[in-house]
């Protein structure tokens, strides 16, 4: 049965072109953080990276964004070493990242303006994306006037506005309450369905990974290795209460538990 829900990525080659090619062995001082992490991400793929806390997920995202040079290996986007100036990278952070002195509209436009898009282009793109994330009518509000969930929607709108080569998301919903979190997950999927884009979504929440991903990579504790790399074949929209969903989640949980040595508490 399980075989119908997932497939090892190696056994089910994805026909889409490779967008991101990762081969990273990073050390922090003498401490190895990533031990030969090797994977590719296809165009318009939604990849979830899961791992126990402290497995270097945030460091990996910094490396993927080109903000941090790995001590070993490389990240290629379109076959070239990743560089924020050359490539079009978006990042949705775990903590609130709206700029408090800018209105909702100007926050969404940050990436477009840095990428020097024309004023007309910025206006129409921002208008469009604000509609997609249901923030119409809040254009002129400042971040302190809106809720935490709305701030995260602004950050997501900002990330999808630039038609990025890669959209990196670092546990973007971890600080939201459960109902808001579930609503935001559904919203991310609908934005992704509409705007398209290659997404690398980091989470330690397996349910989130099973709900969102085309594919999931399960990482071990530090130094991080790939424990499993599977395509999730559950049809969308996924029902988190269905037996298939629950079974897949349990399967991932077993993999992850096997990776955490007993008694370390993760």
């Amino acid at each position: 049965m399980a075989a119908t829900l997932t497939k090892p990525a190696a056994e089910a080659p994805d026909p889409r072109p490779v967008k991101v090619d990762v081969d990273v062995s990073h050390r922090y001082g003498t401490l190895p953080v990533h031990d030969g992490l090797k994977f590719t991400v296809r165009e318009n793929e939604f990849l979830c990276l899961c791992g126990p806390s402290g497995c270097g997920k945030t460091t990996l995202l910094d490396i993927l964004a080109g903000l941090l040079e790995p001590t070993g290996g490389r990240v290629l986007v379109h076959g070239e070493p990743v560089n924020p100036k050359r490539h079009n990278i978006s990042f949705v952070f775990q903590e609130p990242s709206t700029l408090p002195w800018l209105s909702v509209r100007d926050n969404v436009a940050v990436g477009l303006r840095i990428k020097k898009r024309s004023a007309d282009d910025v206006r129409s793109t921002v208008d469009d994306i604000l509609g997609v994330v249901n923030l119409r009518g809040y254009e002129n509000y400042y971040p302190h006037q809106i809720s935490g969930g709305m701030k995260q929607r602004v950050a997501i709108a900002r990330a999808f506005a630039t038609d990025a080569d890669v959209i990196l998301m670092d546990e973007p919903f971890v600080s939201l309450d459960q109902p808001t979190r579930e609503r935001m997950q559904a919203e991310v999927l609908s934005i992704w369905a509409r705007k398209k884009g290659t997404v690398i979504f980091v989470t330690h929440n397996l349910e989130e990974a099973v709900f969102l991903g085309d594919r999931a990579i399960i990482l071990s504790a530090k130094p991080a290795r790939i424990l499993a790399d599977v395509r999730i074949l559950l049809p969308r929209p996924r029902n988190t209460l269905s037996p298939e969903f629950t079974r897949l989640r349990a399967q991932f949980a077993n993999l992850l538990n096997a990776a955490v040595p007993a008694g370390t508490g993760g």
Binding site: L67, N83, I89, F91, S97, L99, V110, I114, K115
Partner: peptide
């Protein structure tokens, strides 16, 4: 640091960070 990072990810220059992040703060 997160405010700097928001702009650096998009490839913002040092001058941009100074005028659009440091100065408003």
């Amino acid at each position: 640091p997160i405010h700097r990072k928001v702009t650096l990810v998009y490839g913002a220059s040092k001058v941009y960070v100074l005028t659009h992040v440091v100065l408003p703060t």
